[in-house]
Design a protein around this nucleic acid. Structure first.
Length: 836
RNA sequence: GCCGGGAUGGCGGAAUUGGUAGACGCACACGACUCAAAAUCGUGCGGAGUAAUCCAUGGGAGUUCGAUUCUCCCUCCCGGCACCA
């Protein structure tokens, strides 16, 4: 309310030169487009800078004030780089395959492409209002056949290298979406990420990408350096840590437990082979394949099948819930031999053992909480072989009243008694290895990527199933395999894609033998298109090649990548995987795609919750821009707080950045009208100006936009009371403000008579020798408390400062009757006196 | 439970990485201008005290001449992972 009154009064006072953001912003946006100043060019002699935003999904709902935050940040960064003489690539596009568009199509019975086109158009109109410096000539859309031709092509390269395989294992199945989901698409509570329905397990033929083959490279790539010793991946350490945890490397051993009266072994992966002497039983995942193989000798099959059924009904998340009580079933008839002790061990199944991790089998002992609890519940014999190295209650460990899980000292372990857990692991592995019963093994948490979706709105998987030849690739010259028009977009519910209902599309000739064959009807997940889009921007119009190597080499890697923290694992892992693969094949010149990555802190609503229709707390950016202008909006979002931190929106605070812009406007108008140039000082700039240029440049470089803006505000405060300020200083100020507030600075820049855009002008330089003041303010501490401040010449040394301090009356009064026993001088910063 | 990030005035935040705590902005108060209001400009603005001064960066200890910053313990908040063998 207050704000509307404020702005209305402004318009009552409209003068010839009043600041009219609406007029100015529109004018310069069309002028920049006309002059093509943001078009990216490959210029061999220039330094390059590739700035990338995570491209949006063009949803039907409008933008809220939080969405543009990241875009503003990259816009500021790329504008500064352009002014600093870099050849800048700052593109934008749309990630438009996926469920929302498909669900909308089902509801409206229209082709999803129609809705996508409309949303893209609207999205672009909305982005335009902010004045972003995108090179729209490179716009991409993942649903464009010219784009997904290459998504399919990359998939084929992977398939040819054996990285894509069919799997019939049970997959996550959403009964509502009627489609399979990757583990990563299932929420923590076992529900579908999209619709919230409880996810079930259902066996289904799927295409899976062998991302686990790249586990080691995804891990080591985080610390890999180029020839000059620079890290390929210069991300925040916390994000790297997230990726390391996602890959989840653990080193251990594969141990063989011989099955009694059989030649077979059960293989177990363990990281705690030091506990093997206390292994008294074995636990298999209920889905373990050996159960079927040994069915004839198992006497309690019914019980086992019942347990298997029960297990299938609960999600993996529930199975791995620490608070659930342990349960299991003894397999009657199956006995294995402990390779270390030679003793017989019964075999159980339990749902907390997962088939997908390790070998789907564990050996159990008293040194694991889960095993311990299960043994106590079913009265399974336990043994101990590790005691705490120091402290701890050894007796309660030995008497099995306490479960000791840590590393310690071995006992009851034959020749390994007395060794520490760590040493013992290597020695025991070697000992069993020599008997052919164990091998060192590295295991990863990372799971292979379930890649197919039984959906319409995705890239068709370019494979053909031939009765004679098996799976055959669609020849490259026939790509793209275009999505055919269908009548119904609904999932079939049988697990097959709607594409399977189109006989004319499905039935083809085998490319190899020309016999009868059928197309693969699964489509790719939404992650596919976003796993390589950074490459497409380097050469978006090339229909003949995946990318022009010259252009690709020129722009890659991405110098700055900005997007949501929620993508820190999935998207960034997938994109790194694809890029690594393409690098290994020689299609790209860089091992890692994104050099710098910074995540955006969410903008929350004023009530502290996430902005959502549901809470009715969404702030519409276009209402804000209509009132305050895009420049004020941009400035405010950057000034709010640290860029990577979540922060609540506060419309009241918007007024500050609007006032700031108006004061810049007023100052420049005054200089212009009165034609004030630099006075006596000529071209010499005051030191605060040098400091501002330095600080703003450094802050933009490291995305510390909040302090960059406050530095600009301080500079303006100084300028307003500085009689030496003229047009020249105003121009320099406009230049360093230009990335933040591109429209108003352009208007004033031209007002001063400049013919070319401020955004292609040269970024101002500062003089390092003029950064510091000629006079120093030195605080004087006495016993750690500041008691006085002395003013000294900048050239004054320690002796001079000390002398001045002792003369100072505020200091002197504390010295009465005391002795100075220690003097600490921090150069140019502080003097500390310690009194006895 | 584990890992990571936090906690600073009425509010958002700053602090050169161990050196004047509260920059910059919002809000608020007073003053100028105005018939009046808004806008604008100026002044003030952590708490206590007339003042000297004292207290104060979630709480408690420690290291140091000096701690928002480092160490240890505790409380709370936010993210991520979670029976991973």
């Amino acid at each position: 309310m207050k704000l509307i009154v404020y702005l209305n009064t402004q318009y009552h006072l409209v003068k010839m030169n009043a600041y009219d953001h609406k007029k100015i912003e529109k004018k310069w946006q069309s002028e920049w487009a006309k002059k093509k100043i943001f078009v990216a060019k490959e210029k061999s002699q220039k330094k390059k800078c590739y700035v990338l935003d995570m491209f949006p999904y063009p949803s039907g709902e409008g933008l809220h004030v939080g969405h543009p935050k990241g875009y503003i940040a990259t816009d500021i960064f790329s504008r500064m780089k352009r002014m600093q003489g870099f050849s800048v690539l700052h593109p934008m596009g749309f990630d438009a395959f996926g469920l929302p568009a498909e669900n909308y199509a089902i509801k409206t019975k229209t082709n999803p492409a129609v809705g996508v086109a409309r949303n893209v158009k609207r999205y672009k109109e909305q982005l335009a209002i902010f004045g972003f410096d995108y090179d729209w000539g490179r716009e991409i859309n993942t649903t464009d056949p010219e784009y997904y031709k290459w998504t399919q092509w990359i998939f084929l390269q992977m398939w040819k290298k054996g990285l894509a395989f069919e799997s019939y294992e049970p997959i996550n199945w959403c009964p509502s979406c009627k489609t399979g989901l990757a583990n990563e698409d299932v929420e923590n509570d076992g529900t579908c990420e999209r619709c919230g329905t409880k996810v079930e397990k259902k066996p289904m033929r799927q295409w899976v990408l062998r991302i686990t083959d790249y586990a080691e490279k995804l891990l080591s790539g985080l610390d890999e350096k180029d020839a000059e010793g620079n890290l390929y991946v210069q991300w925040p350490e916390s994000i790297k840590e997230l990726q390391r945890n996602w890959v989840g490397k653990s080193e251990g051993a594969l141990v063989k437990f011989k099955i009694k009266d059989s030649e077979d072994f059960i293989e177990v992966f363990t990281t705690r082979i030091d506990t093997i002497f206390s292994g008294t039983f074995l636990i298999l995942a209920p889905e373990h394949p050996l159960l079927e193989k040994y069915a004839p000798i198992i006497s309690n099959k019914k019980e086992i099948i019942a347990y298997q059924k029960k297990t299938a009904e609960i999600t993996e998340i529930d199975r791995t819930n620490a608070t659930r009580e342990k349960s299991g079933v003894l397999i009657n008839g199956l006995i294995v031999i402990n390779p270390a002790t030679g003793k017989e061990m019964p075999v159980w199944i339990a749902d907390f053992v997962l088939a997908q991790y390790g070998t789907g089998a564990v050996f159990a002992d008293a040194h694991d909480r889960r095993d311990f609890d299960m043994a106590k519940k079913y009265n399974i014999p336990l043994a101990v072989s590790i005691r705490p190295a120091t402290g701890g209650n050894v007796e309660s460990v030995k008497s099995l009243t306490e479960c000791f899980e840590g590393d310690g000292i071995l006992f009851n372990s034959g020749e390994f008694d007395g060794l520490s857990s760590e040493t013992a692991r290597g020695k025991i592995t070697a000992w069993l290895d020599s008997k052919g019963l164990a091998t060192p093994k590295i295991q990863y948490k990372l799971k292979d990527w379930v890649y197919s979706r039984q959906r319409y709105w995705g890239e068709p998987i370019p494979l053909i199933h031939c009765e004679k030849c098996g799976v055959v690739a669609v020849p490259e010259k026939e790509l793209p395999v275009k999505l055919p028009k269908v009548k119904k977009y609904e999932p079939t519910g049988t697990g097959e894609s709607p594409l399977s209902a189109i006989d004319s599309w499905v039935n083809v000739k085998c490319p190899k033998c020309k016999g009868k064959a059928k197309r693969e009807t699964n489509t790719m997940p939404q992650w596919a298109g976003s796993s390589w889009y950074h490459l497409r921007y380097t050469d978006p119009k090339n229909t003949k090649k995946f990318a022009d190597p010259k252009k690709e080499k020129y722009w890659m890697p991405v110098d700055l990548y900005v997007g949501g923290a929620e993508h820190a694992t999935r998207h960034l892992i997938y994109a790194r995987f694809w890029h690594r693969f393409l690098f290994d094949c020689g299609y790209v010149g860089t091992p890692e795609p994104y050099k710098k990555y910074q995540y955006v802190g969410l903008i929350m609503a004023e009530d502290g919750r996430k902005m959502s229709k549901r809470w009715q707390n969404v702030v519409n950016p276009y209402e804000i821009i209509a009132l305050y202008g895009a420049d004020s909006m941009r400035l405010y979002e950057m000034f709010m707080g640290p860029f990577d931190q979540a922060i609540s929106w506060n419309t009241n605070s918007m007024i500050g950045s609007r006032r700031f812009i108006e004061r810049v406007w007023k100052l420049c108008q005054t200089m212009h009208e009165k034609d004030i140039h630099i006075k006596s000082t000529g071209t010499v700039l005051p030191s605060y100006f040098h400091r501002t240029i330095k600080k703003v440049g450094e802050d933009i470089e490291s995305l510390k936009y909040n302090t960059a803006v406050s530095t600009l505000m301080m500079c303006l405060n100084e300028m307003e009371s500085d009689s030496e300020v003229g047009k020249k200083q105003c121009e320099l100020f406009l230049q360093i403000l230009a990335p933040f507030a591109p429209h108003v600075t352009e208007e004033l820049w031209r007002l001063f008579g400049n013919k070319k855009s401020i955004h292609v002008s040269d970024w101002p330089l500062f003089d390092p020798n003029r950064i510091s003041e000629s006079r120093l303010n030195i605080p004087v501490q006495i016993n750690g408390k500041v008691r006085a401040t002395i003013i000294a010449d900048a050239t004054a040394g320690e002796e001079k400062i000390k002398e001045l301090a002792l003369e100072d009356p505020d200091v002197a009064k504390w010295l009465v009757g005391k002795k100075v026993i220690k003097v600490i001088y921090v150069k140019g910063r502080l003097l500390s006196l310690v009194l006895a």
